[in-house]
Design a protein around this nucleic acid. Structure first.
Lengths: 208, 208
DNA sequence: GTCGCTATGTATAATAT
DNA sequence: TATATTATACATAGCGA
């Protein structure tokens, strides 16, 4: 009984595999290999990762740690682009007050965090005798965030102002006292949210 | 001169690497290895793939064929329920527009305080001679939060636009008075900001 | 952070079941 | 189509520069 020994792993060119059966086998093996590598990378280095693969047949395979969606969300949040913007616009087309509520709650959360960080920096500055505030890397970075937060807020305010002026110009006699209570009422609402500090998106604070 | 020969590749346990330098090297090598494998899978099998990795320092690395965004969009299109914004919409109740106005006004007022405080601290940073704190690697982590905030604000702007236009058509006086209040309360600060640092992903001075 | 090096651990091409 | 076997191609740990 002479059995034919395996030739072992053969070298292949990295080019589209033409034999369909080979392609299917190779895809299956390499896909699992890729996901295994990704899993090891997660464990070894404690990183977040997401992999999405569409097979030649259009079937989707994915790997994610901790979850594909969370990593994608994080990625999209930092890489806004035309495609995702279009998605967001579409999402808002059917969105309503509740979503505005969520968004503003989230913004207020961030503002609270920034305020606390800013206060911490102030405290450090006032009592800094053994350590200067800029020697604390993490807190300093928060200042960076604060700066950018301020810029972003300025942008928002500018937009509001511009648009308000525009509307006023178009509706000169539309000024009424319908919303005149807003300014005086804002302080009470401020107390209602000042404690919000969870790091997720805010829920159910009924701001809008 | 006896030079110590390399021990060659050693077997390792798949567990979190504790030595930081070691972890960094391993992450870099395995990340490139993973991307190479993904590239080969693309070429061999002609598939679409996207990989997103957040390093321990919060830096993002990605690989995509043909593009990360296109694959992610395709993935999200298949999983509409996983869209964060739409998911959160379901968890909210409808509230009133006037309260939205209150919160926005409050937010703008708080912004004034935070902006001033930020500017003060910024001056301290400029007069210091220490290394630039924003070059620290952990910056990206906080930047992520900031990006989310920025995105939320942009989304809010878009949402308010839609609703404002809608309400304007139904009740022009109410909307106008709301914006007139905001405009007057923020005019002073707006004048104080001669320019806006957007970080490359700003929307400029787009109107609502 | 990157790259080169070397010895070795691992993935996998071809094949068979 | 998935899994097992083998011999080999490839990836990479440890160490420097």
């Amino acid at each position: 009984m002479t059995k034919k020994p395996s030739l072992g792993r053969q070298k292949i060119k990295i080019a589209k595999i033409q034999i369909k059966n080979h392609l299917q086998v190779t895809f299956s093996k390499r896909r699992s290999g890729l996901f295994k590598k990704a899993s090891e990378l997660c464990t070894l280095c404690g990183v977040e990762i997401a992999i999405v693969v569409f097979s030649p047949a259009g079937k989707v395979f994915s790997f994610g740690h901790p979850k594909v969606e969370s990593v994608i969300d994080r990625f999209l949040a930092r890489n806004p682009n035309l495609n995702t913007s279009l998605h967001l616009v579409e999402a808002h087309r059917i969105a309503s007050i509740p979503e505005l509520n969520m968004q503003l709650t989230y913004m207020l959360n961030e503002l609270e965090v920034e305020k606390k960080r800013s206060e911490t920096l102030d405290e450090m500055r006032k009592t800094s005798q053994t350590q200067f505030w800029w020697e604390a890397p993490i807190e300093d970075l928060n200042l960076h965030e604060l700066q950018q937060l301020k810029d972003s807020m300025d942008e928002l305010k500018k937009s509001v102002t511009l648009h308000a002026n525009k509307i006023l110009a178009e509706n000169p006699n539309s000024v009424s006292s319908f919303f005149s209570h807003v300014a005086s009422s804002s302080s009470s609402s401020a107390a209602g949210v000042s404690h919000v500090h969870n790091n997720g998106y805010g829920y159910g604070h009924g701001l809008f």
